[in-house]
């Protein structure tokens, strides 16, 4: 240290290591304190309690005919509810053995085979794929087609072609009766 020349120190190495200890522990305490002070600000940007509270949606399935689909809102996102036809189901189970990017059997993606319920947000960059309405393009695999960057999903909502990495996710849901479900 610079001042050791003018102020005689009894044992400089001893003093130095004690000072180093004080210096490093002060820095460490300061760093932990700063991080602790920062966290409330970062966490304030995460979903607030009222946002989290809007976490379930009830859907009545009775009016949806085979081959039809409806879109419901859950947590601000569209959820696709499709009443699958026999051909849809057959195609989906047949393709379990096809080459899949995100490998999942159709049976693991549904609770009742005729009802496919998936979050309608493309896993590429979050667009809403087309295929819900009668006139919509359904892609090469009979499911959905995302117009933004050309991802094709099959009748199980699995990614088959295009840039998206993952299948359309299946939200948590349960049948509250034979014809109603609760998502979330």
């Amino acid at each position: 240290m610079a001042d050791s020349a003018t102020h005689a120190q009894p044992s400089s190495t001893d003093g130095q290591s004690r000072r180093d200890f004080l210096l490093y522990s002060t820095i460490a305490v300061g760093a932990v304190g700063t991080a602790a002070a920062l966290w409330p600000f970062v966490h304030s940007m995460n979903p607030a309690a009222d946002t989290l509270a809007l976490s379930t949606t009830d859907v009545d399935l009775a009016a949806i005919q085979p081959g039809q689909a409806i879109t419901v809102v859950w947590q601000g996102k569209p959820v696709f509810v499709r009443h699958r036809t026999e051909e849809d189901i057959a195609l989906a189970t047949k393709d379990d053995s096809a080459e899949l990017r995100d490998k999942m059997a159709d049976a693991t993606r549904v609770q009742k085979p005729e009802w496919l319920i998936v979050v309608g947000v493309c896993t590429h960059l979050g667009c809403v794929p087309l295929g819900q309405k009668a006139g919509d393009p359904k892609g090469d695999f009979g499911g959905w087609f995302c117009p933004c960057h050309g991802s094709h999903y099959d009748t199980s909502g699995r990614i088959r072609k295009g840039p998206a990495p993952l299948n359309l996710p299946v939200p948590k849901y349960s049948f509250t009766s034979d014809t109603t479900i609760r998502i979330g």
């Binding site: 940007m45 995460n46 947590q75």
Partner: peptide, 11 residues
């Protein structure tokens, strides 16, 4: 964290 929710919304 960026959204403050589960989609782009009011937050």
């Amino acid at each position: 964290l960026l959204w403050g929710g589960f989609s782009v919304d009011n937050p």
